[in-house]
């Protein structure tokens, strides 16, 4: 773990579904620690009571009517798949 920010890089990499070599893990841990030290600028300001902003423009809960619309055909949807089988996406076996 990094000293300043307690980054458990292996835990973070697992959450992110990224395989890292030991060399990469060390390098990213150091770099993230440096970037987070800079981000700590945010702790120098009192932000109590400030409303968080998720989007700059006020657009909320955009809904559309629940109607069938044209979409991709099965062939179109599968066209970019690295592996297909029987007109479906193929993944590795998950059930023994």
């Amino acid at each position: 773990m990094s000293e300043a920010h307690q980054i458990d890089i292996h835990h973070v990499a697992k959450l992110a579904r990224l395989a890292l070599t030991e060399d990469e893990a060390r390098r990213y841990e150091t770099q993230l620690d440096g970037i987070l030290s800079y981000i700590d600028t945010l702790t120098r300001y009192n932000l109590d009571g400030v409303e968080p902003t998720a989007h700059a423009m006020p657009v909320y809960d955009v809904l559309r009517s629940d109607e069938v619309r044209p979409g991709f055909s099965q062939d179109q949807a599968l066209a970019n798949a690295p592996k297909c089988l029987a007109d479906q996406f193929q993944i590795l076996k998950v059930i023994e």
Partner: peptide
């Protein structure tokens, strides 16, 4: 981090 940054975004 995340909520704090969203608040900073407001400022």
């Amino acid at each position: 981090y995340y909520i704090r940054a969203q608040k900073a975004r407001t400022l």
